Simulated scan of single mutants.
Amino acid sequence: MPYTVNGEELETDDEGFLLEADFSDDVVPVIAVAEQIELTDAHWQVIRFMRERYKEDGQTPNFRNMVALLQDEDDSVDWKKRLYELFPMQPNRQSAKVAGLPKPFGKGGY
């Protein structure tokens, strides 16, 4: 199911992950609609985080590492609970998908 962003069709795998990362902010709302997610500032915070991790590490973190890294950035939030509120279908995978990143390795990254 390819996504069309600004008139360009982006290739996806059979689960709807982009085959190549797209860091354009225009791709995020298109994928979010397909995932039935109404974007908030909190979603964008996680999307920016996932994109940064992907750029730095070449992959996205698994859920446990994601929670720990976000906790290091902002310990005023219960990130385990918050991530499931924002991305209820496996937060590390769904947030990577909405961020315009390829499917995480194995069970969800490093």
Rank of each mutant, 00 (worst) to 15 (best):
E15A: 12
E15W: 05
E15S: 13
G16S: 04
L18V: 04
L18S: 07
E20R: 12
A21P: 10
A21M: 06
D22K: 03
D22P: 00
D22V: 05
F23E: 00
F23G: 12
F23S: 07
S24W: 02
S24A: 08
D25R: 03
D25F: 05
D26E: 15
D26Q: 08
V27T: 02
V28S: 09
V28K: 01
V28L: 08
P29C: 05
V30H: 09
V30S: 09
V33E: 15
V33D: 15
A34G: 05
A34C: 03
A34Y: 07
E35K: 02
Q36T: 09
Q36D: 15
I37K: 08
E38G: 12
T40V: 06
D41A: 12
A42Q: 12
A42P: 04
A42E: 14
H43S: 13
H43V: 06
W44Q: 14
V46R: 01
V46T: 09
V46H: 03
R48F: 00
M50Y: 01
R51V: 00
R51P: 00
R51W: 00
E52W: 07
R53M: 13
R53S: 07
R53D: 03
Y54H: 11
Y54D: 00
K55H: 00
E56G: 01
T60G: 10
T60Y: 02
P61T: 01
P61W: 03
N62C: 15
F63A: 12
R64M: 13
R64Y: 11
N65D: 14
N65E: 12
M66F: 05
A68G: 08
A68R: 09
A68Y: 07
A68Q: 13
L69T: 03
L69A: 15
L69E: 15
L70W: 03
L70S: 11
L70F: 07
L70M: 13
Q71C: 13
E73Q: 14
D75Y: 00
D75F: 02
S76M: 06
S76G: 11
V77T: 13
V77G: 12
V77W: 03
W79R: 02
W79G: 09
W79L: 12
K80C: 14
K80E: 14
K81C: 09
K81F: 10
K81I: 06
L83S: 13
L83R: 07
E85V: 09
L86H: 11
P88Y: 04
P88R: 05
M89E: 15
M89T: 10
M89R: 14
M89P: 01
Q90E: 14
N92F: 07
N92V: 04
R93I: 04
R93W: 15
Q94L: 12
Q94N: 06
Q94K: 07
S95A: 15
A96N: 10
K97H: 11
K97Q: 14
V98R: 02
V98D: 08
A99I: 03
A99W: 06
A99L: 11
G100W: 02
L101Q: 07
P102I: 05
P102G: 13
K103S: 13
F105G: 14
F105R: 09
G106M: 10
G109V: 02
